[in-house]
Structure formats: C-alpha cells, structure tokens
Design a binder for these strands. Sequence first.
DNA 1: TTGAAAGCGCTACCAA
DNA 2: TTGGTAGCGCTTTCAA
Lengths: 339, 339
Amino acid sequence: MAIGIKEIARLAGVSTATVSRALSQPARVSPETRAQVMAVVEQHDYRANSFARSLRVRRADAVLALVPNLGNPFFSEIIAGIQEGLAPAGIDLLVTDSLSQQVRRQSPVGHLQAARADGLICLDGGLPAEVLDELAASDVAGRVVFACEWPEGRHFTTVRSDNRAGMALAVQHLAALGHRRFALLTGPAGNVLTQERRQGAVAALAAAGLSLPPEAIAGGSFEIRDGYRAAGALMRCAERPTAILCASDQLAIGCISGLSELGIRVPEDVSVVGFDDIALAAYSRPPLTTIRQDRRRLGRSAAERLLDSLAGRPAAEPLTTLPVEIVVRRSTAPAPGRG
Amino acid sequence: MAIGIKEIARLAGVSTATVSRALSQPARVSPETRAQVMAVVEQHDYRANSFARSLRVRRADAVLALVPNLGNPFFSEIIAGIQEGLAPAGIDLLVTDSLSQQVRRQSPVGHLQAARADGLICLDGGLPAEVLDELAASDVAGRVVFACEWPEGRHFTTVRSDNRAGMALAVQHLAALGHRRFALLTGPAGNVLTQERRQGAVAALAAAGLSLPPEAIAGGSFEIRDGYRAAGALMRCAERPTAILCASDQLAIGCISGLSELGIRVPEDVSVVGFDDIALAAYSRPPLTTIRQDRRRLGRSAAERLLDSLAGRPAAEPLTTLPVEIVVRRSTAPAPGRG
DNA sequence: TTGAAAGCGCTACCAA
DNA sequence: TTGGTAGCGCTTTCAA
C-alpha cells in the first residue's frame, strides 16, 4: 500500500493539515515548513489518494468521452484533441463506446451520477431519446457538450464543423470545373452529418442552377465498403454523373476503388471529392480532393467549452461552428469534354 | 447534488448498511426489504458515489491506457479491444498520451500511486528508463501489461503479435513469386517492432539464401510520409529491388504513392507488402498484400491479462504472442521477367 | 436479517 | 502560520 498523509505528516513533524496545504496551497505555509514537508514527500514519492481528495472536494477531475465506436480511426484525432484540451487543467480522460454502453444498457449519465466524471463529451449524435432526456435534465445539461455530431431538436452545447459550407465548397469547385451532373454518397440515414451535408450540397447545387436526382444519391454509412459498393449503383444512373460528392473520405476512397474496378478513371472520367481530410487522403491514388475539417481542434474546443462550463462560465452561444476548407488534390478535374 | 445513501435509507425506512447490502449483496437482504430499497433506489435513480466506494474498498475499478499518440489511428482498434476486455468486468478505461505525459513530466505511475487506476496497459515500448524503473518496482510491476510494443531487456507481462513470423510470411510469399532483390522499409530506429520485423525479414531471407544489402533498407518511422519519401531512395539502389517489405501499411501506401509518382508500377515492376492490415489496405490502389495482426484481440488480451493479474491470478508465462497471417491482395505479383 | 458505528485518506474549517 | 478535528459517502465488522 502506498504511504498516506498521516505518515508523511509524522515524518515531517507537522500535522496532516500542513502537509495538505504545503501541497495544494504552498503560499500558505512558511518556506521552512514547506521545504521540510516537500523533502519527505519527494523521498517517499507521495501522491495524495485521489478518491479521498475527490470525495472531499466533490470533484472528480475527470471527464468522460462517449464515442460511437472507439475502433473507428476517424475519432482518434478528436480524442487526441480532447486530451490536449484537458491536460493543461490536469483533468483525466475516460473513454467509452456508446455501442457497448447500449449493449450493457448503461447510461453514460451513470458516470456523472456516481461522481466519477465531472462532465461528458459526446461524439454520438444518435443517442436514444431516453438518454437524451437524462442528459437534458437541469443538473446534468451544464456538464455535457456534444462534439462533431449532435442530436437534433435539442439544445446542448455543441462544437461542430461547418458541414454545409464544406459541401458548398465542394460543389463550387466542381461547378467551376464545368461539372453539371452530380451524385452524392451520403452517410448513415438519420445521422445529422448526413443531413447537414446533403442539405449543404443541395443548396449549393441549387445556387448553381443544378439539382440532384434521387437516383444519384447512394451510400448509407461513412465506411469504405459502402463507397465501394455504391460506385456501381451510381454508374448505372441513366444520366451518369461526372462528379461525386462524398460525405467522408472513406466513402470517397472506397468509391474510387469501386470505380477503378469498373474501368472508370478518376479524375478523367469522374471527379470525386471527399470530406474530412484524413491522413491517408493525400496518399491515396489519386490524391484526394477533399474538405478538411480540423478534428483535433474540434476535440480541443469541446474540452475547453466543457471546462469553461464546469467552471461556471458557460459560453453565451451554445453552438460553436468551426470553419472548413477545401484541399484540392488530384481526384478532381474538368468535366469530360471540357478539358 | 445527487442523492446519497443516507437519504435512500431514510426513505426506505432502513439503515444505510441495508441499502448498501441490497445493492451489492442482494442475497443477504430479505426479499421484502430488498424490494423496498430497490423501489426507492430506482425512483431516485440512485448511484453510489464511486469515490466513497473506491476509498472504502481500495479499488478504483479503472485502468489506464498509455498510448504513444492518441491521434494515431493505428491505436484506435487496440483501444477498442481494451475497452471490450474491460467492459464485462465493469472497469472504466482512462487514456492518456505518452507524448503529452512526457511534456508535462508526469509519470503514468502517478495514477497508480494516487490509486486513480488499478492497473496500466502500456502501448509504448519506448518509455524512458526512469519510468520503466518505476514500473518495475515490486508494488507496481504486477499491475502493468505491455501491449503491441514492449521495452527490451525488461520482464513485463506483454501481449504482442508474432512480428518475426509475419515478416517471414511476407518473404516466403515474395520468394515464391520469384523475387530475389528485396528492400525493407523500417519503422523508427530503436523501436522494438522495427527490430523484430527487420530480424524476421533478415532471417527469412537468409533461409531462402537471400540477403538484404544495407542500401536497401530505408524508412525511419511508421508514417505514410516516410514511405513516400523512401520510395525514391530505394529506386536509386544499384541493384534495384523488385520486392519491398514494409513495417507498416502506412509505409506501404506511402511507398506505392511515391513509386507511382516515379512512374513505377505496382505490382508489375515492384511488389509491395505491408504490415497490419488496416481497414484501408483492402481499398488502396492496388489493394495491399499485407500481414494481418489482430489489433482488437491484442487489446482484449492485454485487458484480460491485466484483469487476471489484478485478481491475483497472474499467468505463468509473461509473454503472449498472437498469431499473424498473410492477406494476399494485388500489390504483389511474380518478379518481372518471370510472369 | 438488520442496525450502529468505525474508518477509508483527505481537505477545510475554526481556533490558537 | 499551524494544528485539531469534523466530515465527504460509502462498506463492513460486530452485535443484537
């Protein structure tokens, strides 16, 4: 068992109160006593038991991140950002998977109720209504922020990328290259990002006097595999598209892979634009034109917002929208016949 | 503030001891009392304060995962596996970045000392010697397991993939295709995986009567970028290799990208084999032949080993080596001139 | 089967 | 500036 404060106090010849103060409010202890205490502390490598401390101060100094799927590499950069935002404040990061939580029928609110975490950063916009109701309860709502995704029709503090603007950027780039027949590879049905990005695409298309026929919409997840599968469906359209907007880089890479199996060249025959700018995007063949969203910053902002909120300084505006930019690489080219 | 055990006891008309028992040892409470207590518990959605509990039972019910770089998607699958191994036992997962830890000069042992975590799963084999010494201390060593990477010359419990066998598989596959001139793209200098995989390659090459000239070794990290850069260097070898073994899929994808810039075709001119089998490997152009290591299982095993060890049943053998397999896709082909 | 009460290790109040 | 001490919320012994 590790050494305790009583033993440190005994060895330093002071009271436990003084040891505690020497550690957390050094200014309130005379320099000599402090030195004396610190010597013993360092000698024994003493660290205050965090549970006793948390119990007393009623603070966990930990935050829980609820991730839809921990195994999905898309989230790793966001998690790194969260950690980056938390670390300076000395706050620990707990992570859990909303899939496994649901299997075990545990609410993430349990962690807050058990005082195990001070706050919650939720990367899953698709939580069941019961859970959202719990999260919206007055004593909890101030301790949760959504990042990346968010639940619709609710009013949680949220940090997100400008998904609509991103799609608009993609449409404008493609339209400028002379493309007129567009297709869209969407994410999972019901996902907010799917909706935002679709609406962004439709609006930007309309602004360019273009439209998106229903048969030119495919997808159904953000995964590579679905991009691969959808490629075939899209190419069977009566009016074959020359430009494909994808709701994720994974979809785009899968789609290009599928197109290539069909003997269709990117970007000569068809242009493809991704979304996210994952690390591999620059090195896929061809290097992917995509919409970059700063996932690390997304995580960092979410952490900072949560910390502010926990410290009693909630932001005036519950919604933070981070800018995105288009990164033009080589998966897009002038529309065929307009080279 | 959340409701406490005293209030529940009062409302249920029993003592706090009975509430506690009803919750954690239901068999030791009469059915009527239990029902009575549970009714109040559910009505108020009561959850025992985890700190008070941990303080009393001297157990955190949490484990810390120390990851070299949380933002690296390679680790996400391992983390998912850890979580998967921990969840059935109701153990929480804390994550931290060894980079940021080092910047802040905090030892991960601090979490154990502060009783904040019961154990540590370390994915970083390159920790500084001081930290390793701390981890090797008798009261700590039984609570740490290394996964994926491990520190050399130490005797920690470790779960890893069979890196040497993996490279041997790659060499055998390529040799069978008639390749005689090999190159190797290695990971970071000093990394165990770099060494194991290099040794595996050299040994398997030797067994086939082949060797690896020093100029045919390049790399220096597991990152895509370095694969891309190394492609040029490798192609400048006097004896240009026809087969490139890569220590990671990222290196392989970067390398193929670099080769393609140079007008070198994969697999017609050069065959490339990766290592890991990341999700994108199957969809890169060309689909990557690679060595699959089961990262999720790696994480799960590590979690299970740690849990066993914490429960006082340490495994007899400190080293667990998981099998790997080769996945042949289309980045490898018969050596040129042997079609 | 149940309750009273000690005490886990710490912080913060109050008094000296 | 320092020490004594109550008490954070829970579990667990001991006795009834």
